[in-house]
Simulated assay, not measured.
Amino acid sequence: MISDLAGRFRRHDRPVRHRSLAFSVLGPCGLFAAGLLAEYLLGGVKYSSIGDTMSVLASIKQTAVVTTIGFVWCSLCQIITATGLPVRRIARIALAVAGVCGLVVAACPVGVNAFPGMTTIHFAAAAIGTTILAIWPLLSASRAPGTPLPFRPVVATMATIALLALLAWLLSQSINGSMLGLVERLAVYGGVTWPAIATWWAYRHYRDEGRLPARVTGATEVAGAAEPVGVQPS
């Protein structure tokens, strides 16, 4: 049934935009780098990356700015990436919404009650954003001929199952677990990294087929030509 739903999605024949190619990788890298820098800046503050979440890291005075910048950067990169992906509109909108949720998470840090319900908004945005990222592989799937591997129904379904399993594990850890921080990182980094993997794979796929636009390949397009001049299909 899941594969049948994915099979209704339209063909992935829209070339990968250069901005999506770059920002799909810059987002996760920036978030990971911010996390590493924040832990370095902790000094003598008691914090465990295994048991404590990134939200807690963002609430500590010494690391709040760096961690928040990481959240904002990754979220903005997701939004930019969504504008140039070779997927149907609902998948691009979903990725952009996940980015907006990340911005809300950054704007409503845990422990800073600037207004009533701020912490609730933080956790609600985090839950919505991570859930969207978990199902995004399925939203972007297609059975059309020539679809890049990460967007094919079997691969996309497996990725969604894996990400949802991480979310289920995260939920169980949040109720009663000692590895909440580690599992949260696995779920978040997994969710933001999959679009990057899919984007780069799609870029290589379309490049090998000679279907990238001239501004990406450097080729010259001729009116009426099926392929850009100088790009030979494999």
Rank of each mutant, 00 (worst) to 15 (best):
M1R: 04
R8K: 13
H12G: 03
P15L: 13
P15M: 14
H18D: 07
S20H: 00
A22H: 15
V25D: 06
V25S: 14
L26K: 14
F32Q: 13
F32P: 01
A33Q: 13
A38C: 06
A38W: 12
A38I: 11
E39C: 04
Y40F: 05
K46S: 12
K46R: 13
S48I: 15
S49I: 13
I50E: 13
I50N: 06
G51T: 10
G51K: 06
D52W: 04
D52G: 01
T53Y: 10
M54N: 08
S55G: 15
V56R: 11
V56M: 11
L57D: 07
L57K: 04
A58N: 05
S59I: 06
I60S: 04
T63L: 14
T63C: 12
T63K: 12
T63R: 09
V65M: 12
V66H: 02
G70N: 06
F71Q: 02
F71T: 03
W73H: 12
C74N: 02
C74K: 00
S75N: 01
S75I: 01
Q78F: 01
I79A: 09
I79S: 07
G84F: 10
G84T: 09
L85P: 00
P86C: 08
R89K: 12
R89H: 09
I90D: 14
A91S: 13
A91K: 08
A94N: 05
A96G: 13
V97Y: 08
A98W: 05
G99K: 10
G102A: 01
L103M: 06
L103Y: 06
V104F: 04
C108W: 03
V110F: 07
G111R: 10
G111C: 09
P116W: 12
P116S: 12
M118Y: 01
M118Q: 09
T119H: 11
F123Y: 15
A125D: 14
A126M: 08
T131P: 01
T131K: 04
T131D: 11
I132C: 04
I132L: 15
L133W: 13
A134M: 05
I135H: 02
S140P: 01
A141R: 04
S142R: 01
R143Q: 04
G146L: 10
G146R: 07
G146I: 10
P148I: 03
P150I: 09
P150A: 09
P153L: 02
V155T: 10
T157C: 03
M158T: 03
A159K: 00
L163C: 01
L163P: 00
L164D: 10
L164G: 03
A165V: 09
L166N: 01
A168H: 13
W169E: 15
W169T: 14
S172R: 00
S172D: 03
Q173K: 02
S174G: 06
N176C: 05
G177V: 08
M179H: 15
M179P: 00
G181T: 09
L182G: 03
V183G: 05
E184Y: 10
Y189V: 11
G191E: 08
T193M: 11
W194N: 10
W200G: 04
W200E: 08
Y203M: 15
Y203P: 03
H205M: 12
H205I: 10
Y206E: 12
E209V: 03
E209Y: 11
R211T: 07
A219I: 02
V222Q: 14
V222W: 13
E227R: 15
V229E: 02
Q232R: 09
Q232L: 05
